[in-house]
């Protein structure tokens, strides 16, 4: 490790390092700004969790927590998100260490594929719940459930579109310095959604298995 001043710059997520010159210089302020956005997003999610926790009893005689949990599907969704996060990490490491654009795009698309698996399973669960009469307008509890889990799903859907966008940018512009910092920020967003998901399976789904 060298101790040059540019090497001392550091920010959340994978640091590109001084060898990336302009991109590394640019990364610190833009990543810090993005980090502030993520933390405010975390506050939003926290309030959805709080609303969920206070609505647990408000089932109005409709389906409750235990009636809509499919533990196999939740386990698969968790696995899909974790693998997707790992693949995104591999993509950023490949970008940092000078892999070809098509290699990085390959890892990003692989990450996207697992993200889409997650979304597909989640949509299937939502359809199953709706068929059991567990629609959001049925009770206060179900409104809170759909809002919390749906908000996370919406974030994953937006992230999936953004993965396609950065892949297109890499393909068209190559690794320009602003493209590199976008990949870094999207990586933070993608890993951040995993952290929200830990909260969702620990607070919403697993307690539903209680007999």
């Amino acid at each position: 490790m060298t101790t040059s001043t540019s090497h001392l710059k550091s920010h959340p997520g994978l640091n590109l390092g001084a060898a990336h010159g302009q991109a590394h210089e640019d990364a610190e302020p833009v990543v810090f700004g993005f980090w502030i956005f993520l933390m405010s997003d975390l506050v939003t999610f926290a309030m959805f969790f709080a609303v969920y926790a206070t609505s647990l009893q408000a089932t109005a005689g409709g389906p409750g927590n235990a009636d809509i949990v499919d533990v196999t599907s939740i386990a698969l969704q968790t696995a899909a998100l974790l693998v997707s996060s790992l693949l995104f990490g591999i993509a950023t490491v490949a970008m940092k260490h000078g892999s070809a654009a098509r290699t990085v795009i390959f890892w990003l698309i692989a990450s996207l594929a697992f993200g889409l698996c997650f979304l597909g399973l989640e949509v299937r669960d939502f359809i199953d719940a709706a068929e059991k009469g567990a629609v959001p307008m049925r009770s206060g509890y179900l409104s809170a459930f759909w809002a919390l889990v749906g908000l996370h799903g919406l974030h994953v859907a937006v992230g999936s579109i953004m993965i396609l966008v950065v892949c297109a940018q890499i393909a068209f512009f190559g690794f320009a310095s602003d493209v590199k910092t976008r990949v870094l920020r999207l990586g933070l967003y993608w890993h951040f959604l995993d952290i929200i998901w830990i909260g969702i399976f620990s607070v919403v789904f697993l307690p539903g298995l209680l007999t």
Binding site: P12, G13, H191, F192, D194, G199, S202, V203, P207
Partner: peptide
């Protein structure tokens, strides 16, 4: 569940977000 979730959040911050 609370202890495991907090531990996992710390792991994600440490190893994926490099905090």
């Amino acid at each position: 569940l609370a202890v495991l979730a907090i531990a996992q959040v710390v792991v994600h911050f440490r190893f994926f977000l490099h905090i």
